[in-house]
Design a protein around this nucleic acid. Structure first.
Lengths: 208, 208
DNA sequence: ATCAAGTCTGAAACTTGTTCTAGATTAACG
DNA sequence: CGTTAATCTAGAACAAGTTTCAGACTTGAT
């Protein structure tokens, strides 16, 4: 039995300075093109050109368009998590704080709807080959929600509630992006699902 | 002001016998190919060949691959709704009945995971041009859930809960299809979100 | 400084969704 | 029937994601 250090990713060799720079240029170009015209506007040839990299190189860094966009989302999420940390939500209950946090994220997405489109579509369209990356995004989202709840160690019920909140969050975004739900409707959906948190709160146990 | 019968679709001219037959052949071929290898295996040229129709004709009937797969889903959903009607769920509470119904649907999808993959991926990848069709699928799903709840006229809160259940249902399916969640996990998510129904029940909700 | 291995480039090729065209077939109607 | 408009067919052509390849460039180790 070989002693695996981490079951996640084979420890990819560290990147050189110039490689890091290339990677950043690519992600920047991707986000820029996405902001212009959404998923369809992120064309691999254009990304390559914008970021001064050969097409083959682009594919070496990101093995598919979906990989690229999911990585773009990772970057944006990290940025947002940082922003949220600085200004924690003010609500009195965990449910309120989570709803407030998600609405804040939602407003950020509204400022760049095309970028949101590209990232979310990529995320939900991703197949098994992108699972590790998508999982990473999911973990990051979970962290953001748990942060908002302000919990040290959540109960299994609470984790289930968080999962359902994430499901609702993603799906509600999709309905908004495809024009089938209004901003107000998304707000209602978020607030509705956040009530699940109260249901699972241990401090005030329900009779059972 | 013209009296519109339905604001949905301009009344498309009725199809002839042979056109109906063509449409059925196309949808059948689509479902068959999807069952084999999922979204990627549904190739427009192959669908055209399998259904004995020219490529241009296929595109006249379904203006894109996503349209085709969403229509395929409509057909499957209708079939499932019929099946479910015949054997209504037995649970004591509305939440139990909804969970039971969704799990039954889930088991049906498990029998054809590739087909499920094709349909669900198309559904969530659909852009605005497919909104009417996707909306139709959504309405159909809402009907199934409301049927399971056994309600005459649901309250706005209950409708919100149903929306959130649908979100969770779609997103949970995606995580399962992409191998990021187990069947057991999907079950838990469904049961968790169904608790929202109790939360919104207008009369005395506890007991069984 | 030199060599080997790995990386990057530019360009072409391949795949599959989508569009277009010219001609054949069908349907509706007088 | 014969005409006319709509539909269908076969096939080429186009668009964008992906793969491939030969040669130039970097990097790390000696």
């Amino acid at each position: 039995m070989p002693a695996e250090v981490s079951s996640a990713s084979p420890p990819s060799p560290p990147l050189t300075e110039r490689q890091e720079a290339r990677r950043r240029r690519i992600l920047h170009a991707s986000a820029q093109l996405a902001s212009r015209g959404g998923f369809d506007a992120v064309q691999m040839r254009e990304v390559a050109e914008s970021s001064q990299v050969a097409l083959g190189t682009l594919y070496r860094y990101f093995p598919s368009k979906v990989h690229l966009l999911v990585a773009t989302m990772q970057a944006q999420l990290e940025h947002m998590h940082g922003t949220l940390r600085k200004k924690p939500p003010q609500g009195a209950t965990a449910a309120e704080r989570v709803a407030e946090t998600l609405m804040r994220a939602f407003r950020a997405l509204q400022r760049e709807p095309h970028l949101a489109d590209a990232m979310v579509r990529a995320l939900t369209f991703a197949d098994r080959s992108v699972s590790p990356e998508v999982d990473q995004v999911s973990r990051q989202t979970t962290m953001i929600i748990l942060d908002a709840m302000g919990l040290e160690d959540p109960t299994p019920q609470q984790l289930s509630a968080v999962r359902v909140i994430e499901h609702t969050w993603h799906s509600a975004l999709i309905t908004w992006l495809s024009g089938r739900a209004s901003i107000a409707q998304v707000k209602i959906d978020i607030e509705t699902v956040c009530r699940l948190i109260d249901l699972t709160a241990p401090e005030e146990p329900r009779r059972r």
